[in-house]
Design a protein around this nucleic acid. Structure first.
Lengths: 260, 260
DNA sequence: CGCACAATTGAAGCAGCTCAAAATAAGTGG
DNA sequence: CCACTTATTTTGAGCTGCTTCAATTGTGCG
């Protein structure tokens, strides 16, 4: 299997042999992590960038009263603290949800890579732009979507992202996330997440059991969450219009540019 | 007055004479815009990047039922469609809220700038990281904060950002935003925004009249919104720990690293 | 087998919503 | 500068999606 970082960055355009070699060398230092552990903490000034190779983590912030909001989920190929490279301090924490492994790349190496190769710099910048696009969707969901639509949207998003790194087949994937964590991500209470999941099951949109999620009705789930995967693939090479077999399954809907 | 772009990018570290000259030259092409006009539209594939020089704009997404969620506010010095440079298509729209002027920089020029100067590339990347940090705060607010705290936080954020570009003095600034627009930004109804603003006034935290906002009690408003400005200034030069007179007024609270 | 955590259920409460209308403010043409 | 029109702010009142509190029922695992 190719280096997850290289695969990730090459989504946007090929890299030269030398560039790939440099990235390969940079990600040589690997570290394991346990579940439910902080990988980076709010306020930290990391001295390196960490890239998930295996496992799942989430970004989160704690509020004054101890409640928390989960900001993002991170899977293989994701840098979790690029912010530290250019911003100095972290404005949020990253916690592991499962055991896993990450590559650790010193800031010096990162800066060197970006200085040497404008293409790598650009690809990294692009990952930040993609993060921002995901954040925008979360904002829309939290601000204006019902609990039902919010969950549906998140499950769609995860499916597409996991599929892109080979961790989802046939609309089925591991969801190593408790309902309490889902609630923190979706801005809901645990109780309501539970009831809403039941509704999604009752409507035969999903099956969920023992951390394994199966999307039973992709089109239905997409519709329920008003999910449009364009935002996840913009800028990719070899699918100028955002469709070329990366979808979980089934044909695209007719409209070429569905207005959100 | 210095070029807003140069001022913006130099927050993070000085640029060379040549770099500043290149940026100055790049922002030569200027265009006016009217209020309530789309500057960029969801799905567009812009051929240039637009930088606000004067006026206020907002990013937004429309939902299927016509409701909308405002994603971001843009002020002088902000690029509004950097996304278009590397991602191709826009995943949201940008609308003007006031009349204003913007600089238009072709993608070719942008790419050239970033290729020629790693420092400019890095500074631009950093603005995207900053955008992402702001998004994270919005997510926390929408997900977990009360209407009251949400509004307070937004007003604090705007104050700090406007102050940074010289558009706020003494905790007072123009807020050319209707309550309906605030509602769309905060994920609330117009009615509730109105009532909550009244509460903020009743508690003497703010004064608001005719589009002019005055923060009457900065510490109180900060506390109400659990606002911690660190996320807006991380990585800035000349204030490693995020305090050096850029605050609206009054001393910093005692704790150095207030846990959010 | 039994602990500890996760999922589920029930019931009451409330923050914020919707609907509807009145009161201001902000244009706009004459 | 006024009369008229339109947008924004404000108020009232009933409604509901989601929360909170409090158990109960799985379920993975040492």
């Amino acid at each position: 299997m190719a280096n997850p970082l290289i695969r990730n960055l090459e989504q946007f355009g090929a890299l030269s042999h030398a560039e790939k070699a440099a990235l390969q060398a940079a990600t040589g230092m690997v570290r394991d992590f346990a579940p439910d552990q902080d990988l980076v903490r709010d306020g930290d000034r990391p001295r390196d960038c960490k890239l998930i190779l295996e496992g799942v983590a989430c970004g989160y912030k704690l509020l004054g009263d101890g409640r928390r909001q989960i900001i993002s989920f991170h899977i293989a190929g994701d840098f979790i603290d690029l912010q530290g490279l250019l911003m100095g301090a972290m404005d949020h924490s990253i916690g592991s949800l499962t055991p896993g492994r990450m590559a650790v790349v010193s800031h010096a190496t990162m800066l060197d890579l970006t200085e040497t190769s404008p293409r790598i710099a650009r690809a990294l910048w692009r990952t930040t732009l993609l993060d921002a696009a995901v954040f925008r969707q979360w904002i829309v969901g939290l601000g204006r979507r019902s609990a039902y639509a919010r969950i549906a949207h998140l499950l769609c998003e995860l499916c597409v992202r996991l599929k892109a790194v080979g961790l989802s087949q046939d609309g089925s994937y591991d969801l190593p996330v408790t309902q309490a964590e889902l609630a923190d991500a979706l801005g809901l209470s645990t109780v309501h997440v539970n009831r809403t999941l039941q509704a999604l099951r009752r409507h035969s949109l999903i099956m969920l059991r023992g951390g394994k999620l199966t999307i039973a009705d992709w089109e239905g789930l997409k519709a329920a969450g008003e999910f449009d995967p364009h935002y996840l693939v913009a800028g990719r090479k070899n699918d100028a219009n955002g469709r070329s077999g990366w979808l979980p399954s089934g044909p695209e809907p007719s409209g070429v540019s569905p207005e959100l």
